[in-house]
Design a protein around this nucleic acid. Sequence first.
DNA 1: CGCTTGATTGATTTGAGTCAATCCCAGTGG
DNA 2: CCACTGGGATTGACTCAAATCAATCAAGCG
Lengths: 252, 252
Amino acid sequence: MKAMMQKKANQAHLTSQLKVSCDTCSLSELCLPRGLSKEDLNKLDHLIERPRSHDANTLIYQPGDKFTGFYAVRSGGVKTYLTKKTGEQQILGFHLPGEVFGLDGLENSKQRCYAAAMENTSYCILPHEELDSLCAVIPELRSQVYHIMGHEMNCDHAHLLLLGQQTAHERLATFLLSISSRFKKRGFSATSFVLPMSRHDIAGYLGIAVETVSRLFKSFQEQGIIKINRKQVDILDLDKLNEMVANCEEPK
Amino acid sequence: MKAMMQKKANQAHLTSQLKVSCDTCSLSELCLPRGLSKEDLNKLDHLIERPRSHDANTLIYQPGDKFTGFYAVRSGGVKTYLTKKTGEQQILGFHLPGEVFGLDGLENSKQRCYAAAMENTSYCILPHEELDSLCAVIPELRSQVYHIMGHEMNCDHAHLLLLGQQTAHERLATFLLSISSRFKKRGFSATSFVLPMSRHDIAGYLGIAVETVSRLFKSFQEQGIIKINRKQVDILDLDKLNEMVANCEEPK
DNA sequence: CGCTTGATTGATTTGAGTCAATCCCAGTGG
DNA sequence: CCACTGGGATTGACTCAAATCAATCAAGCG
């Protein structure tokens, strides 16, 4: 199994031939370049290693690896996670195109968690040293880096609230809404989409058992809230979902 | 109740008369100044608003407040938290002297969570704009800012693992070890200390009920692992505690 | 010295986990 | 082209860890 994963990871990919600049990247408004002038964007563009590619279920990095820089998903999907000795994975986050991951390495220049591609995935790397130097001279880039880090932290905090205070069905509803709104932001349907992750990963993210995920999906379907077939999800009653998670006090 | 909290918060404090520079602050090796030259330290020192003070159980900021900058605890203790509509608090973190909080405001210049003093607390504020400008010219300061942010994220990730995968007794053991090692780092005893937070807050941090916290403390005591009386904790068997949490795969 | 608030203890309930079969599809190879 | 197969997903039966409900108990305070 491990050998197979390694073999896959080492394959050359067609996508690695692609040359795409931030300038023309459809994700730039969601990604690090957001808010930069054309000139500054150009500087950023030159230091990016891209695109790299990983097959489904292959590791991108793991704890102890040297921290290379920020990773930005271009296509596919990535999960970051920690594990218990017993093997259970706590998924820390799912990362969709335009989203950044790898910030866990900032503390001491070593990655602290695992990152794995959930499907065939391509991504850019922004080497940290070069990015840092550029930050010194482009205030807008610093702002954007702060913004992204702050966003990551707030996502983690929402996740903590979910794991610490929400029931299993609230968790699943929150999860569906999060995926839905993120697909929407990327120009896809908010109510009909294909989940990029397995039931196992959903369970790992929500801190519940796979069987519970299965049962809850079924229950949601029976209530007419969603229609689900394998990874194909159709949200039939978005209001009901929102109602279910309307428990986290919103800032006024 | 609210009125009382407000009144307390508005009182002038003796500590606010104190003038302490980073230079002579015993916490500087744990705090933002770490790794800065004397000259750079001086620049940093000039932009710090300090010291501010809050009485026990008073709010320092809340969701929607304007993001002012990084907060560094000087004495006392602070909790940051989110709440459900129903009132339950999910504690995001406990912040001891020398620790930084308030980074949740980085995403969009508004605070996203609550911060409250758990006891009479003094702290410094590092205004964000000034700190950012200084970051442009002091690479070491940028490094330290990255380090602190990375550390925050990794703390949150460990917290996610705790909430998602650990049993109630593993959670409490993890919590005790975390507090112990942080006190130790500050030059206090690792095995005998006074908890700065209530049972309610511990429960809120660990995602379990207060009653469970109480029962577990009792159970730990009966097993000879700790001795506990109200907030006074004596750890009798540190190895046993470590054994209980030896479940998170360590980076090799 | 009563009062309020936090902590403890006990009795009972329950949401979600665990264990154990299937089921079902995607991919493989004949 | 279709049978085979292995891993993910589903379903059901049963268990249990922790929540909830309900009294005390203890301590700090006005």
